[in-house]
């Protein structure tokens, strides 16, 4: 009896030692990887890390000092940036809308238990993986070549990615639905569309709307970035102002500020809305 306990303790201690050893090895591996990666990145970069570190604030200082000197221009530039801001927001909103709709379809086609063609679920899952993996900028640049610059290439690019990302999240949420209503509808002869519409959608609607809102936040950022490669909106204005250089730094500051404020406000509103949707959001 005692011997058994002792050997049990010894085994436990050995287990702990082994786990610590594994942990230490993993940690050492990580440190080596990180350090060597850091030095590679350092060597392949134009400017070094330590050289640049004290220069981080040079550029902000430069633009802000110019903006402060010309602070009278700022309100006018703020107003001037509003149309571009609306374009950026429009791109994000429409992309979220279309991407969400396609994502909904993909989610239903790839969720176990709900799929219209159960055998094809792996195909649709792989499809969504690929849609998520293709970087937006590639689609946007190719479409700019085909359609010319403007908001539509950016919108399509973001919608494509959104469909893949939301499709995955939607289908994860739909996997957890209660199947009883669906079975009930099936028992009274409801077809696939009716089962989904009346049995599943009401259950997943709060979660799905919350995911879509979160995606909208992400898409605003993406649409600003895509603007930088020629897709219109705030990003494009920022690029032209930066290329101009000195003399337009007040405009750069105005665009920075309006982008920052928009992201903060939208984040805040959607945070609140999502909390209501998921926690207290039982339909009235």
């Amino acid at each position: 009896m005692t011997a058994h306990t002792v050997s049990g303790t010894a085994e436990y201690l050995a287990l702990v030692r082994r786990r610590r050893l594994y942990g230490a090895i993993l940690f050492a591996l990580f440190v080596v990887l990180f350090a060597s990666g850091f030095s590679v990145a350092e060597n392949r970069n134009a400017g070094g890390f330590l050289d640049g570190l004290h220069r981080i604030f040079d550029f902000p200082k430069e633009i802000f000092s110019e903006a402060f000197a010309n602070w009278r221009n700022l309100p006018r530039l703020f107003v001037a940036a509003v149309p571009s801001l609306i374009e950026t927001l429009n791109i994000a909103a429409i992309a979220t809308l279309f991407g969400g709709l396609v994502g909904m379809g993909l989610a239903f086609l790839s969720t176990r238990g709900l799929a219209l063609w159960p055998r094809l679920t792996p195909v649709f899952r792989r499809m969504m993986d690929i849609m998520r993996a293709i970087p937006e900028i590639v689609i946007a640049l190719v479409l700019i070549f085909l359609l010319g610059g403007g908001p539509i290439p950016a919108m399509i690019a973001i919608a494509f990615h959104t469909a893949g990302a939301l499709g995955k999240l939607f289908s994860e949420a739909a996997e957890n639905v209660d199947l009883k209503p669906v079975e009930g509808l099936a028992s009274v002869g409801g077809n696939w569309f009716q089962r989904i519409w009346f049995g599943v959608l009401p259950q997943v609607a709060p979660n799905w709307s919350s995911y879509a809102l979160l995606r909208f936040e992400i898409n605003i950022r993406a649409s600003a970035i895509l603007g930088f490669v020629g897709a219109g909106g705030l990003g494009y204005d920022l690029k032209t102002a930066l290329q101009w250089g000195q003399g337009k730094y007040d405009q750069v500051v105005a665009i920075f500020a309006i982008l920052f404020l928009t992201i903060m406000i939208v984040d805040h509103i959607s945070d609140r809305a999502r909390e209501r949707l998921v926690k207290g959001g039982k339909p009235a």
């Binding site: 890390f49 640049g52 550029f59 990003g235 920075f256």
Partner: peptide, 21 residues
Amino acid sequence: GVDGLIWTVILSRAFGPGPMT
């Protein structure tokens, strides 16, 4: 809140183009 785009612009001034930036 400061978008990745803004960080990229500011940092590439300080560190130059490359993976570190």
